[in-house]
Design a protein around this nucleic acid. Sequence first.
DNA 1: ATTACGACGCTAGG
DNA 2: CCTAGCGTCGT
Length: 653
Amino acid sequence: DIRSLGCEEKRELLATIEQAVAFVTTMIFQDGSSQLSSEQVLTSSVKGVVVLVKNQTDHPCPPSYSSIDYTWNAANENDKLIYLKTEWSSLWEQEQQAHKKFAWQVLFQMLHCKVPIICFNAKDFLRTLLQVYGNEISWKQVADSVVLDPRIAAWLINPSDTVPSFESLIQKYFEKPFSMGTVNTDTGTLRNASVSTLKLFFLIYLYQYQNLRVNLEKLYNVMRYLARDLQVQGLWKLFCTLELPLIKILAVMETHKIHVNTQELKKTSDILGLRLKELEQEAYQVAGGQFLLTSSSQLREVLFEKLKLHVLCEKVHRTEIQQLVSTSEVVLNKLQDLHPLPKIILEYRQVHKMKSTYVDGLQTCIRKGFISSTWNQTGTVTGRLSAKQPNIQGISKHPVRITKKQYIKGKEAEIVTISPRTLFVSKKGYSFLAADFSHIELRILADLSSEPELLKLFQEPETTDIFSTVASQWKGIPSEEVKHADREQAKRIVYSVVYGAGKERLADSLGITPLQASQFIESFMQKYKKVHEFTKKTIEQCRNKGYVVSIMGRKRPLVNINAQDYKLRTQAERQAVNFVVQGSAADLCKMAMVEIFTSVVISPTLTARLIAQIHDELLFEVEDSQILEFSALVKRTMESLQQTTALEVPLKV
DNA sequence: ATTACGACGCTAGG
DNA sequence: CCTAGCGTCGT
């Protein structure tokens, strides 16, 4: 405990840190649990940080192939365990101020000495530091730290393991499961012994931290095993140059708060609520009875048993599990002309989604007028990021029009447009800047397949509308005669190929029969033969190796690729094709994040901060005076990734 | 009688 | 194809 150290001892400690070869660290929560506990309690606040300082020179990390000793090597006497309290009752006392200052001194040195800091869920650790020491540091100061996160390493090795716990990693790498002793396992026997209360607390304290020391040693060793695995599997570079820097970027992102217009939020909630009531009444009228509009099973009863609408319509989509007639958007669209109810339901659903998710749902995420999403780096199998509370990646783009009846004032009606994205407001003197890759997945498909027609499309500067051009090329009609419907169809088919969708899925999305859909796919593949070759080759490689690889070497094992079962096998085939395209796009977007972050950190003047990543789009908050300079930097950096990754196809932002 | 939880359906993002 | 989130409904 650094609070018990004298002046000389403090100096010694800093000297030890200077000599360290690695730090293994975890946060300690109020309830005594740590980041290594299986159930991470978010409600419990952070009490402090425990750091195991590795001083042995025998196990450098990152390790080399040859000189790793894989034997269990727990109690290393030269390793130092230090405890830093980060929570203070009051900062009035001089003593507490001094403790906080020294704790920061220790952490600052750790972050800046380029020695790896090993931490399970490192993002949470860094974010907490930024929050606790927010006044004495700027976010740029975490940038040159070197953090290693075993969880991310494990996820890279197998992305299907979406949340590998510390315990599961221990089990996997040390075969026999360890007893994860917790603080309160043995207090009973302690209580029975005739020891004084003070002594008891001391014993619990000691036990807890000895246990923690063992776990940190285990964590260190697990990281070494994982590092070796990453190297063997060719994932080490991806880990070091992309995923590790991203930890810091996400930690910084989570400390940034976005202001929300709460008054507007309340107002729109009421407007939407009123509209829902109106639609509810209209629905009851035309249905000839009341039912729960939000219940798809009750709606199914009304539409298909009471009104028998589906018999007038051929080939309606069915639900996945129970194989019942679906009440989804595509089906309701087909039923529109037969009865007024489907149209009402469609609008009801749109308005209800808007209210429940983007207005009322957003309100539950607001703390003191601000929101900040939680970013999950290991939440997907394709390498993409995911966000929650709120899911800022899923906020509706298109506005919803509402005809608001105004009874009070003389006006008859007023049309209000509600677009959720306008509810977020930038800081005063700052603006939001969005930069997105144009058609990145299609460009990647062009590159991966080397399809000449597709490549030409992107390389020729006169191509203004990619899907119109594809439509004209594919259907063999002049570009002036391409209708809006042709363009939409081309877009759907292109993305069906990108997403690896089968004929059934395409049929649903286009509202046609699976036979017609398969004919569309076939004629598309006939025109762009190399794309077909690419999908065939990808599936073939997956069959041989058991996994597929993205452009940056990200892997996805697909065990079902050789399955007997047709459904499972073809699903795995689509997943294989999809992973290569989607995963590669994720690689590029992450690279853009890292490069832009680095540029801003290096720059003494730029202050732009990343707010969100919506897969192919980066959203920043930029000082108004820097918008021109920064937007040029962003565009240049993103487009230059073509050279960095040796892509045949240019990237456009 | 009330609550908790998993399965299912739908739809927003890409 | 892969996400988050809202909502029923049965257990």
